[in-house]
Design a protein around this nucleic acid. Structure first.
Length: 426
DNA sequence: TCTGGGGTCCTAGGACCC
DNA sequence: TCTGGGGTCCTAGGACCC
């Protein structure tokens, strides 16, 4: 029996709004002399990486994550500009405020990008296309930044549409046009297809999303793994069950620091890990959270990285405890190296398996002194030290007290303000 | 001369339990 | 003596995203 009544299909009520070349656009907004010119935020001709490139620079092949010297080689006229990190945060927040004027159903997925579900807003602001146009106009006039928007029935389609719309454009995919829209696009535009997957697909002659849709799910699962293959197959067929999630808490917190090339000397390792643990533990305590699993990452020359992790019986958030665990794990990793001790280029700490930890029960206040480390502070002493440091910083600023940051190689390391831009809500 | 820092999720093997 | 099957947690590595 055939179903004669056509199912009512939802319209393109999911919007994906994405600021164009965000950091670079802000710099061009702040300094009119930079407008229309190829610029890179971050990096320099002899060190560091480009954090963002203006469209004028992108035309030369420059992109975020690229070493500064390569950007200079591709585009000799490029100008490296220092970042106004505080302004990035402020302006991006202003944009999100504009988005919230249209609907509370906003899912911010990074500093410069968000999904909106406008299905409940059409009676106030008109159809999704009109909302998208109004939104772009308001961001342009009130904040001064170009923003691209994709509108479609699902998150995946909306995201692909906004990428196609860039720069400074709007693409609406009507439900009846979805297949026609997706089929000719390259697989790299899809969520979850990075360089490795792209390469593997290309080896099988799969280059477009249409090719992907024509490939059996089982074949994709063999090629890319069960989960990625199945998801990709579903997305290629326009099946995307994801809803807008307005608030999501982080599942892990971490900090890492590039070091240049350094021999892993005890003093260096201890100081870097102390600094990283301080950053991570402070964030945990500020949100009354703590974690049971501690992971340390050590990167060697040639980008080879190893991790060592341990899961504790109880969650921790004390700076000293985290430092001690991290130090043990780091030496475990370094000790596992065979042959001559290699130079290290990065150290990182991550804490996962997060739990709520209210101030009252914080840090096992009655934990006895560790018999293996006579003289080291007891649980209650750690608690007092941490709370005192937190309180002083709250009053006088982060650098009023605490652990001195480590001076690293030139070009390595970025300002704290930049790190904060990438932090997720704990 | 292979380059930042914040994250998420998946896989595979092993330990351990029932 | 050696055998099944399912489930959970942990660890290490890796792909991917912004």
């Amino acid at each position: 029996m055939r179903v004669t009544q056509k199912q009512p299909r939802a319209g393109p009520t999911i919007l994906h709004a994405d600021l164009d070349a965000f950091y670079a656009s802000v710099e061009q907004l702040l300094d009119p002399a930079l407008r229309g010119r190829p610029i890179a935020v971050g990096g320099s001709a002899d060190g560091g990486v480009v954090l963002a490139a203006s469209y004028e620079a992108k035309a030369f092949g420059v992109h975020g994550g690229m070493p500064g010297w390569r950007a200079r080689r591709l585009c000799p006229a490029i100008r490296f500009v220092g970042g106004h990190f505080r302004e990035y945060q402020r302006l991006a927040d202003d944009v999100m405020t504009v988005l919230h004027d249209f609907t509370p159903a906003v899912e911010r997925i990074s500093i410069d990008e968000a999904f909106l579900d406008v299905s409940g807003a059409t009676h106030l602001f008109g159809p999704p296309t009109a909302i998208a146009q109004a939104l772009r106009q308001r961001v342009r006039t009130e904040v001064g930044l170009p923003i691209s928007v994709g509108a479609a029935r699902t998150k995946h389609l909306a995201k692909v549409a906004s990428q196609v719309a860039k720069p400074d454009g709007l693409v609406v995919v009507e439900p009846d046009d979805e297949h026609e829209f997706l089929a000719p696009l390259p697989v790299a535009l899809m969520w979850g297809v990075g360089p490795v997957a792209q390469q593997r697909l290309a080896e099988r002659g799969i280059r477009t999303i249409g090719d992907l849709a024509a490939t059996p799910s089982s074949a994709l699962e063999r090629l890319l793994g069960d989960a990625v293959g199945a998801k990709l197959s579903a997305l290629a067929h326009n099946e995307d069950p994801r809803r807008i999630v307005t608030s999501a808490r982080a599942r892990s917190v971490g900090a890492q620091s590039a070091l240049g090339r350094r021999m892993p000397e005890a003093e260096l390792v201890r100081r870097v890990l102390t600094h990283l643990a301080d950053r991570v533990a402070t964030r945990l305590r500020a949100k009354e959270r703590a974690g049971r699993t501690i992971t340390v990452r050590v990167r060697y020359t040639g980008m080879r990285a190893v991790t060592r992790s341990t899961t504790l019986g109880a969650a921790i958030s004390s700076t000293l405890s985290l430092t001690e665990v991290a130090e043990r794990l780091a030496w475990q990793a370094i000790g596992d190296e065979t042959g001559p001790t290699p130079e290290i280029t990065l150290l990182g700490i991550s804490v996962s398996n997060l739990e709520h930890q209210g101030v009252v029960q914080l840090e096992l206040p009655f934990q006895p002194e560790d018999p293996h480390r006579p003289g080291s502070p007891t649980g209650s002493a750690r608690w007092v030290v941490d709370r005192t440091v937190d309180a002083v910083r709250e009053k006088f600023g982060r650098h009023a007290v605490g652990y001195a940051p480590v001076e690293l190689a030139r070009g390595a390391g970025v300002p704290d303000e930049f790190r904060e831009l990438a932090e997720h809500d704990l």
